[in-house]
Design a protein around this nucleic acid. Structure first.
Length: 468
DNA sequence: GCATGATCATGC
DNA sequence: GCATGATCATGC
């Protein structure tokens, strides 16, 4: 094997050397064929990253806190699996950055944080994910240097500070991915069994790491590809970073809605200058976008993996409909035994943005309130129960007998196809109706009530009622 | 009034 | 053409 040709002290040299990977595999560029590199990413999660370090860059970085992989060049090496989806390159998962040291975190400030020292300047190698291919045969599709741009920096700083605040409050054990926007405190499969001491409480907390949300990684891919092209502001809620100097993103969004709260739809569409088509099922979404000041979809919401939902409550404040998620794959659920890494957990831990419309006594609708919401810690444990029941019953072939709404106060399973003929293959080979997880209407109704009209509450943890 | 199953409308 | 979000319909 030839010596890697780059200057380890010069970031530009390293980034340039990484660029040569594009379109190639590690085997092609290093000639390495050793048996130990026949491992796949499915069996060895960090396998590709390891090969990248040892074979291509020929470095052996340590694990010191706040020290990037290329210490002299102040550059941290990351790799990320991607998938091609509708002709678009998207991240397969989040990018995990440094492990959170709860004791040190509470002593730090953002500018001097070990997080920023280690991750402030990233070199990311994106490869095309394949299940059964050796790590040295995986193809690199994109490489690039990533420093958090000004437009993201204040949001990420607020995220870091929110995580820090929760740890300071002795709630490291209640950290949730839905707490924050772009940067999150994630668990990893192996982490879930490691319990750590935390500074503000005697309760142990799961080991977590800072990571970039999947939607944020998608936006990195997009922005690396665009190079220095102007960012299109038409779908950005925040038109200039300065808007975030005095308020958080959540406050800014809520403020945009404030002038319209309590007003009838008729008045709102008149003020916004849009055509009244109340029969359109996406009408609420059109109104939402217009108020946010975006054309199609708020880019920040995508980056933060936020689920936007408009819901309707009746005159008495009752939520008529439960809230659906995408249909699940019976085969995937049948294989899931670890809640920490289940696809369902990730879905439920996301942040929601609810736009609440209310029926008035005269039958017209008004915009009632908006709120950011993420599932409280103790209620996620209820979803875990539903998930556990569901996976077990699927394994037993009880496809028509999955947890019903009365079985749990938070979530249930119900059909969700285009019609009754919309079926998919179950693990035993039979064709069964598409179904999905739902958030119970009654539960969401209570959660929405917790938030008073006009008062945005970001990280409120409502008191949970016991399961009946 | 609620649980449950079913379907519609739109955008990608 | 299909997935997804939103909503309807029926029966107890």
């Amino acid at each position: 094997m030839t010596k890697a040709e780059y200057d380890i002290t010069d970031p530009e040299s390293i980034i340039g050397f990484a660029r040569r990977l594009k379109g190639h595999t590690i085997k092609e560029l290093t000639g390495e064929t050793g048996q130990m590199w026949s491992m796949t990413v499915s069996s060895h999660k960090g396998g590709f990253g390891k090969a990248l370090e040892e074979l291509y860059f020929q470095i052996h970085p340590g694990n010191d806190e706040g020290v990037p992989d290329f210490n002299e060049a102040k550059l941290e090496l990351k790799s990320c699996p991607t998938l091609e989806k509708n002709d678009r390159l998207v991240a397969k998962e989040r990018i995990v950055l440094s492990i959170i040291n709860y004791d040190k975190l509470v002593e730090e400030d953002w500018e001097g944080s070990s997080f920023l020292k280690k991750n402030g300047n990233l070199l990311i190698v994106f490869y095309l994910h394949e299940d059964k291919v050796s790590v040295i045969d995986l193809r690199v599709v994109l490489t690039g240097n990533w420093k958090f741009p000004e437009e993201d920096r204040l949001i990420i700083k607020a995220d870091w500070e929110r995580i820090q605040a929760k740890v300071k409050a002795g709630k490291a054990d209640e950290l949730s991915e839905g707490d924050t926007l772009y940067l999150k405190a994630c668990t990893k499969d192996a982490f879930s069994r490691i319990n750590k001491k935390q500074p503000g409480s005697l309760r142990l907390a799961k080991q977590r790491a800072f990571s970039l949300k999947q939607g944020y990684v998608d936006s990195i891919i997009e922005r690396i590809r665009l190079k220095d092209q102007e960012i299109d502001l038409r779908d950005m809620v925040v038109k200039h970073p300065n808007e975030l100097k005095r308020k958080t993103f959540e406050q800014l969004v809520t403020d945009r809605f404030r002038p319209y709260l309590g007003k009838s739809m008729e008045t709102i569409i008149k003020e916004l200058g849009i055509t009244y088509r109340p029969e359109a099922k996406n009408f609420n979404a059109l109104v939402t976008n217009k108020i946010l000041g975006v054309e199609k979809k708020a880019i920040e919401f995508n980056r933060a993996d936020i689920i936007v939902r408009s819901v309707l409550i009746d005159e008495k404040g009752k939520l008529e409909q439960s809230i659906s998620f995408p249909a699940f794959d019976y085969n995937i659920l049948a294989r899931e035994t670890d809640w920490e890494v289940s696809s369902i957990r990730e879905m439920f831990e996301r942040k929601f943005f609810f736009v609440v419309f209310k029926l008035r006594d005269d039958g017209t609708k008004e915009l009632n309130k908006v709120l950011f919401w993420s599932i409280p810690y103790e209620d996620l444990a209820e979803v875990e129960k539903v998930w556990k029941e569901t996976t077990e019953r699927i394994r037993q072939g009880r496809y028509e007998d999955l947890p019903k709404i009365r079985e749990n106060r938070v979530s249930h399973i119900r059909p969700h196809g285009r019609n009754a003929q919309d079926k998919v293959r179950a693990p035993d080979g039979s064709m069964v109706k598409k179904q999905c997880f739902w958030l119970n209407a009654k539960y969401i109704e209570e959660q929405i009530k917790e938030v008073a009209l006009l008062v945005p509450r970001q990280s409120r943890l409502p008191i949970s009622k016991k399961n009946t």
